[in-house]
Design a binder for these strands. Structure first.
Lengths: 182, 182
DNA sequence: AGATAAACGGAGTGATGACTTCGAATATAT
DNA sequence: ATATATTCGAAGTCATCACTCCGTTTATCT
């Protein structure tokens, strides 16, 4: 692949990440404009809009997975888990697309995105079980429902665009529900 | 207003409720087709698509408010509160649009829908404070965050379309977080 | 430096969907 | 029953958007 092509591909991905983050229904022209390339160039790299969306989605999921893996190295698993949870929800509030990504990863999406979704979920599972072993999270909570809770909190925060104070208080309620049973 | 006109208006509302419940991006033609009227008739009653959506939204919110008010009469405020919460989340899972309605009611939306949103929220507040007085819900939880939690759970359940078992377990975690602090 | 294969941009194209127009149909008042 | 004012529906209009075509530019290889 020629250097300028690889370069443009990266610019398009960055632009798409930004544009679709603001509004998932944005047009391909918007992406091209922000990337500073022609529309045809976008379509040369991503033959359909779906493929472009999927590439962005995959990128986001991989980023989240990396963040989770990074935190998994922490020596305070409880703190690591709650920090990750909080960060995902907080970022969703401003970056619309993360919560979309999280849900889309479950449902539709092509193979790449699905694989990325699985990777992300595995990393999350690692964080959760470590926190449970450390006694920071109740042991009877399964990954599925805790993950669902995170998605829900993200989407709720995004859609209702909550004030930070309310968001934090909401997270407080959730965290109390996740605390070990006495 | 002529009888057939009022009749058609009702049919359109019912059809729109159904169609937008399945897919919020459905076209006006779809609504007209299901209602069994021409497109022009839809536009005569609702000059823009936005107004039609808003009418549906308002209807949904009013239904929820009525349900809340009905439950407020119960002699077990704790049970009434949790039943309402559960019902809203469960129905969202199948009827896509309720959670949209709940979030839209907070943010955008015209005056009618906003008023309906306030009504719904007030009814919810009544349910919550009664449950708190009865000692079924922790007293330091404010309406804002509990409402946010309900919206989040709804949207999460809708988007991820959770299996009922996982949904119920997720609700279990939430309810433990809402329990009075010991 | 010059050849050439790859990549580029912008002007199309076709489909979709919100909204309008206008002649036909129908409910209500006399 | 008939007049008429209101409502109806099908065929349009216009804008938007995903996607294509093709003449021009540019990176890389010798």
């Amino acid at each position: 692949m020629r250097a300028d092509a690889r370069d443009n591909r990266a610019r398009i991905m960055t632009a798409a990440d930004d544009v679709f983050g603001r509004s998932p229904s944005a047009s391909t022209d918007d992406v091209a404009r922000l990337a500073g390339v022609g529309i045809a160039t976008v379509f040369r790299h991503f033959p359909t809009k779906t493929e472009l969306l999927e590439a962005v989605l995959t990128l986001r999921l991989e980023r989240l997975r990396d963040r989770a893996l990074e935190l998994a190295g922490s020596d305070d698993p409880g703190k690591a888990f709650f920090e990750f949870f909080t960060q995902v929800v907080s970022e969703s509030a401003s970056k619309l697309a993360i919560s979309e990504a999280l849900t889309a990863a479950g449902a539709a999406a092509g193979e790449d995105a699905r694989a990325a979704g699985r990777g992300m979920r595995e990393a999350f599972n690692g964080l959760l079980t470590a926190a449970q072993r450390a006694g920071a999270v109740r042991s009877d909570a399964e990954t599925a429902e805790v993950y669902a809770l995170m998605i829900g909190a993200s989407r709720g925060a995004t859609a209702a665009n909550l004030e930070p104070r309310v968001r934090d208080r909401m997270l407080g309620l959730i965290y109390d529900g996740l605390a070990p049973r006495s």
